[in-house]
């Protein structure tokens, strides 16, 4: 037997087994992904009952009955030559033929799947051949197992269960970060470079920060306040700075500190920019709905403390702090 095997869909087209556009990728759910990732050998039954063409149908019926199975592969000289199922035996019973030999009634033109095929391929074969079980062969065409639709369902459910457990573990690890790492002062720092006039990415850093805080187990209300404050600060860097700036988030068990630093143009009168409605935004930016003169007012409302230091020609530093009640982040209660 020739050992060359045809390449699997996965080898031909990459990890998911077929060419996938970005658009498709969004629509693929985990079950579909698993049906490409899981292999027939991962889910098949390897412990096999077999029979030979010379066995009597009566013996096969006993084999099926005792083992509660509905069909067995037929082997001759180490090669798969057919399959005999309960349906074939029913046909024989109708003719009172149970003493006949397996070779007489078995199904010969067999559909098989390779052990290295994806279960997606196996599902296709089930659909095309309208059969309930398929013999599994290796690249030398030797029988190595059987696969049923039930095996596939079980395989997918087991894999999903494993996914779920892994996600639980990841969540647990993130939310217990501050408990697990022991130091005199643990701080997690996230840094984002914000470009001036980059409206296309406006709000991305804030969204990522909010998501990170939720992942770390922050109270949703606190994550929301941080999100709003940091969004206004991020947009200020985009709208008003000469070269953009740096947005920094420092998470400690008892406190979240957000800050922006830029190198100009600087604010001449800090008290003036704190007045609701005061804005220096251009007409063009106002048309987009920015420049309401409410940014710093909003920030003040959302955080526990806010400080601005600014020098014209040098730049501005904005620091915002939110205190975290001790039960948040499952942190040490040293607040």
């Amino acid at each position: 037997m020739c050992p060359t095997r045809t390449p699997t869909e996965q080898e031909k087209h990459g990890r998911r087994g077929r060419p996938i556009t970005d658009r498709d990728a969004n629509e693929i759910n985990r079950v579909e992904e698993l049906s490409y990732d899981l292999k027939v050998r991962d889910v098949m039954t390897a412990k096999l009952f077999t029979t030979t063409p010379q066995a009597s149908l009566f013996d096969v019926l006993e084999l099926l009955r005792l083992n509660r199975i509905s069909g067995v592969p037929v082997i001759q000289d180490d090669e798969l030559v057919g399959i005999i199922s309960i349906e074939d035996i029913v046909r024989a019973m109708e003719r009172n033929d149970l003493t006949e030999l397996v070779g007489q009634y078995m199904t010969r033109a067999l559909a098989t799947v390779f052990n290295y095929d994806s279960i997606y391929k196996a599902m296709q074969t089930f659909a095309e051949r309208k059969v309930g079980r398929l013999p599994v062969v290796d690249e030398t065409n030797r029988l190595v197992g059987m696969i049923t639709k039930g095996d596939i369902t079980r395989g997918i459910l087991t894999a999903l269960q494993k996914d779920y457990k892994e996600e639980e573990v990841r969540r647990y690890r993130a939310s217990h970060l501050f408990e697990d790492i022991i130091s005199d002062r643990t701080t997690l720092v996230l840094r984002y470079n914000i470009k001036a006039h980059d409206f296309t990415h406006g709000g991305n850093a804030s969204s990522n920060i909010k998501r990170a805080l939720l992942r770390l187990g922050a109270d949703p209300q606190i994550a929301r306040r941080c999100g709003i404050a940091v969004y206004e600060a991020e947009m200020n860097l985009i709208i008003h700075t000469t070269h953009g700036g740096i947005l920094k988030l420092e998470v400690e068990p008892h406190r979240i500190t957000m800050s922006t630093t830029d190198d100009g143009p600087g604010i001449s009168d800090v008290n003036q920019v704190l007045q609701p409605g005061y804005s220096t935004a251009t007409e063009q930016v106002r048309e987009m709905g920015f420049g309401a003169g409410m940014g710093l007012v909003n920030i003040k409302r959302c955080v526990d403390s806010m400080d601005i230091e600014s020098t014209v020609g040098k730049g501005t530093k904005l620091i915002m702090r939110i205190h975290v009640p001790t039960e948040n982040f499952n942190g040490r209660k040293d607040g």
Binding site: T200, G203, S206, S207, K210, G227, Y231, G289, F290
Partner: peptide, 17 residues
């Protein structure tokens, strides 16, 4: 409810849920 239709409304909506 708004007249604005540019990219930045998405970030605002996402932060506010």
């Amino acid at each position: 409810i708004t007249l604005q239709a540019h990219l930045n409304i998405v970030a605002v909506a996402a932060l506010l849920e």
